[in-house]
Computed example of a mutant assay.
Amino acid sequence: MSVPHLDLHADPIDLTAALVDIPSVSEDESVIADAVETALRDQTTGFEIVRNGNAVLARTHRGLPTRVMLAGHLDTVPIADNVPSRRERDHADGDVIHGCGTVDMKSGDAVFLHLAATVDAAHDLTLVFYDCEEIAASKNGLGRIERELPEWLQADVAILGEPSGGFIEAGCQGTLRVRLTAGGTRAHSARSWLGDNAVHKLGAVLDRLASYEARQVDIDGCVYREGLQAVRISGGVAGNVVPDAAEVDVNFRFAPDRSVEQAVGHVRNVFAGLGLGVEVTDSSPGALPGLGAPAAAALIEAAGGQFRAKYGWTDVSRFSALGIPAVNYGPGDPNLAHKRDERVPTAQITDVTSVLREYLSKA
């Protein structure tokens, strides 16, 4: 099979469409990785380029005082009858490109690839295009690169091309899932006094959740809003049985000034005294915005001062853990990611390209 051609000197709007037209569902990114690698080798100069699985990495070694990393994932969620791409110039949102990955995040990848070939950068650049971001964290290509090629993940600032509507979204929230379990005694519901209803014990959990007052935390001018929510509840045996077991899953989205351990401690305190089992089933740390770092401050200036907190978790957390200030900055409304009618306004692609060109061109 021939490798699809990508023209890195083309308008990044057209490059977005070309990337979308290469299906790349998670764990099936070899074709798009081949195309990206070939394009970088043939159409850029001064880059060291390596392949790691279905990830493609490129970096310059010009001895410049700062290094900027541009990182984006190549995979998408499963296609929903929305490949190949389709351009609609008179949509209610203006001129848009429809298709799987237009938002998350092939438009961001297109911007980065175009700039690699066309920008006269005043910084050394590292580009990381990686695989398997949309599935289990254990398969994330960025994690594999961190284990196998850690020297490639060094920079003064990292820009992740996740959709942010053209705003700089700094840092990210941490996320924690906890399962609360209640036990009881099974009995016939006609003789309920002989039993102990486990489902009823979860009422106190719901009461505490309903009255919970979430924090709002200002960090570097970014306001993070925490949230503690029940996301699943189960229990019951049959229509005539007092249940002897019940459980509820609670999701805590926490500001990046808390560690995972502190978040777990907070959740335990919220439900203290209820006599319930508490099991942490999933956790990921947040990422501080780091906007006080000079390289990050210069990016904010180039974007006209438009920045906000990132709600939700992204791979900026990985960079933060490495001590690298990191932001999310890319075209597309994150609310449209993964949807059948996923689409990106072409004006946002142009604007993000312009802002990053200005930023990368200035020392």
Rank of each mutant, 00 (worst) to 15 (best):
F167W: 13
G171W: 02
C172H: 12
I79A: 06
D81E: 09
A190W: 12
G108D: 01
E148Q: 12
R87M: 06
R147H: 11
E162P: 04
D90Q: 06
C132W: 10
Q154W: 06
W152M: 03
T126G: 01
G174E: 13
E151Q: 14
C100G: 04
V178I: 09
R191V: 12
L127F: 07
V157W: 04
S85F: 06
F167G: 10
P84Y: 09
D124Q: 02
Q154R: 14
A121Y: 02
A116L: 01
S138L: 15
A182D: 11
G184K: 04
I97A: 02
A155D: 06
N82C: 11
G141K: 09
A121Q: 02
G166S: 05
L125G: 00
G108S: 08
E148G: 10
A190F: 13
D81Q: 14
L74Y: 12
D109Q: 04
D131Y: 14
M105P: 03
R144I: 10
T102K: 03
I145N: 03
D124C: 02
L160Y: 10
A71D: 14
D75W: 08
R147P: 14
A182R: 01
D75A: 14
R67H: 13
A136F: 11
L160S: 07
I97P: 00
T181I: 03
H188P: 05
D120N: 12
G143P: 08
D75N: 10
A155S: 09
L142Q: 14
Q173I: 11
L70D: 00
R191E: 15
V103E: 10
R191A: 15
H73P: 08
C172Y: 08
P78S: 15
S85L: 04
L70Y: 03
G174I: 12
R86I: 05
H98C: 10
D93K: 15
I79P: 09
L125C: 00
A136P: 09
I145W: 02
S164N: 09
H73L: 08
H91Q: 15
L160V: 11
D156C: 15
G166F: 04
S164P: 08
L176V: 15
E88P: 08
I168A: 04
L176C: 03
A187W: 13
T175A: 12
I79C: 04
A182I: 04
I159C: 00
A121L: 05
